[in-house]
């Protein structure tokens, strides 16, 4: 399954549009978009490998996406690492369990403070694609 992410304009923060053929792809694109913001240079990641497990529940799928990305961001800062890969054990509309994989880094390109709920809305468009907006507080 495939997906994509695109950055759109926002006066002060970063507005990311994520799309996926299914929910998993959508969530993975969110992680990739976050990694893109954080990385100084994609080619220069040589730090030790890191992994974490995320198991969360949320009142709805939109909150689940934002809470999941918030978890990834929290571990990004605690571990001083960029997480780029995701393996889902399961992804249900209000509950997920996943392992995330990344590398330690010397510093980040951008100070991403938080993943916000503002404008986020996980929805399925006519051709069956899933999409949402995600605004990062910079």
């Amino acid at each position: 399954m495939a997906g994509s992410f695109t950055f759109m304009d926002h006066t002060a923060d970063r507005r990311l549009k994520v799309k996926g053929d299914d929910l998993e792809s959508l969530f993975i694109e969110g992680v990739k978009g976050l990694a893109y913001l954080l990385q100084v240079d994609m080619q220069k990641i040589h730090g030790a490998s890191v992994k974490r497990t995320i198991d969360i529940e949320a009142p709805d799928t939109t909150s689940l996406l934002i809470d999941f990305l918030s978890e990834v961001l929290t571990y990004t800062h605690i571990d001083k690492s960029v997480y780029e890969k995701v393996q889902f054990e399961f992804l249900e509309p209000r509950h997920l369990k996943a392992r995330i994989f990344g590398h330690r880094v010397e510093g980040f390109a951008e100070e991403v403070k938080a993943v916000t709920y503002h404008e986020a809305e996980v929805s399925q468009v006519e051709n069956g694609t899933w999409e949402s907006m995600v605004i990062f507080d910079i």
Binding site: H10, T11, H118
Partner: peptide, 8 residues
């Protein structure tokens, strides 16, 4: 200016 929720 535009924020995320509240305006800045």
């Amino acid at each position: 200016h535009e924020g995320y929720g509240f305006p800045i």
